[in-house]
Amino acid sequence: MIALAGVYHPGSSALHRCPAGIKLFVLCVVGTTAMIVGSLPVLGAGIVLLAVGYAIARIEPRAIWRLSRALLVVVAIIAVIQALVSGLTAALVLAARLLLLVGAANLLTLTTPTSALIDVIERVLGPLRRFGVDPGQVGIAVALTLRFIPVIATQAARIREAQAARGVRSYRSFLLPLVISTVRMADGVGEALTVRGFQAGGARHG
C-alpha cells in the first residue's frame, strides 16, 4: 500500500557507480565551501557543475522537481525578503548557496542506493564504539525500522478507518492506539531478537 522505495533513482552512470563514501566526502567539501564563499561567480560555477552532474546521472526533471519543489518555494520567499532588506546581490548569493547545497545533497541521494549509505554510516560509526555506540546494533535497528514502517502505516490506516466508521475525528483516539500497538509489536520483536541470539551491547548475528 505504502511503497517506501526511497528517493534513490536507479541508473548506471559514472555518478551511480562512484562509491558512496567518496560522494559523501565531496558533498561535505562542497557544502562547507558553499557556506564560506560569498562570491556570486564561484557559486554560479558550482551550480553549473551541479547541473552537469545531474545531466551525467540522467535524472529526469520530474524526479528533481518532486524532491526540491518545497525548497524552491522557501528559497524564493527568502530571496525576495533578502532582496528588499539587503539588496539584490545578497539575495542572489543566498539563493545560489541554498540551491547548491541542497541540490548537491539531493544529487547524492538520487544516485546512491539506501543500502550503500547505511553501509557508510556503519563504517563511520566504527570509531564511536568506545562511546558505547555499536555499529552492528545501529544496522539492526535501521533494518527493523525499515521493516516496520509499512506495518505501522497499515495499522495507522486501520485505526483511521475504524475512527471513520464510528464518526470519530480526534487526534488522541488515533495516536493512543497507534502508540500502544507500536509498543506491543516492540515487545514481540524484542523477544524474537533475544531468542535469535541478539546480545545486549553485543555483536550482530545472522
Binding site: A141, L178, E191, T194, A200
Partner: peptide
C-alpha cells in the same frame, strides 16, 4: 546497557515517527 527490547522499541518508534 541496551537490551534487545530497547533496540526494538527504538527501531519501532523511529518507524512510528516516519509513519
Amino acid at each position: 546497557r541496551t537490551t534487545a527490547k530497547d533496540v526494538a522499541l527504538i527501531a519501532l518508534f523511529a518507524a512510528f515517527i516516519c509513519v
